[in-house]
Amino acid sequence: MWRTLTTRLGPGLLRDIALVCAADGLVGASFGAITVGSGLPLWLPMLMSVVVFAGAAQFMFVGLVASGGNPIAAVLAGLLVNARHLPFGFAVGDVFGRGLARRAVGAHLMIDETVAFALAQRDADRRRTAFWVCGIMLFVCWNVGAVAGAFGGTVISDTDAFGLDAAFPAVLLALVLPSLKDRATRLAVAVGVAVALATSPLLPAGVPVLLALAGVLVTLGAAPDPPRDGSRDPAAAPPARSEDAT
């Protein structure tokens, strides 16, 4: 199994995915520890990690509920943070494969890291394999981490001390960077990031990231249609991608 994956993805990419999943496991452990440590029941972090499977929204929900917030408000705040999955799914919806079960499970495994790893692959087959491998490993690590943290307590409740809060933006940045070779994408990103940062102090979490999509509108007028030769080459359609995340 491992050998098949190694030949399909290359040892480098598999190692990269494993590293991100291990780091996510530590964050999952801190989620479990913080949740239980703030007086919420032992089963809550485990149930949430299986049912919701979205770190930022889980931390947001637990933070609000533990500080005496209204649970309805906490659910709404979590949903707002997770709204980005809709455009994500629209963008990478072709990686799940066919069939209802695959589409449902694939959708549940769709999260920032899996989207980023999938987008960083050039051909469709590699993209699909990277998505599924990353998604399954991430789900396992995140949930094992949540269980360990819930039972193990506060040993690793402060992941900031290990710099993990800097590692995750760096992971996404490294995976996104090759796409920025494309000039139109670079422009869209610059505008989108500016909009997100400017609106962040004013709007609830999750909304600024969605507003960043305004950056895409800028490229609509700016970039002319790429030349067409009639033959549709799926590998050439998306903007420049790295062959490998390494």
Binding site: L119, L172, L175, T185, V189, V193, L197, P208
Partner: peptide, 21 residues
């Protein structure tokens, strides 16, 4: 192509907001 760009923009906005704020 625009969809792929949209995903990159979302990820980049996540990077910027989670790195700085």
């Amino acid at each position: 192509q625009l969809m792929a760009t949209a995903a990159v923009v979302l990820l980049a906005a996540l990077v910027a907001t989670s790195a700085l704020l």
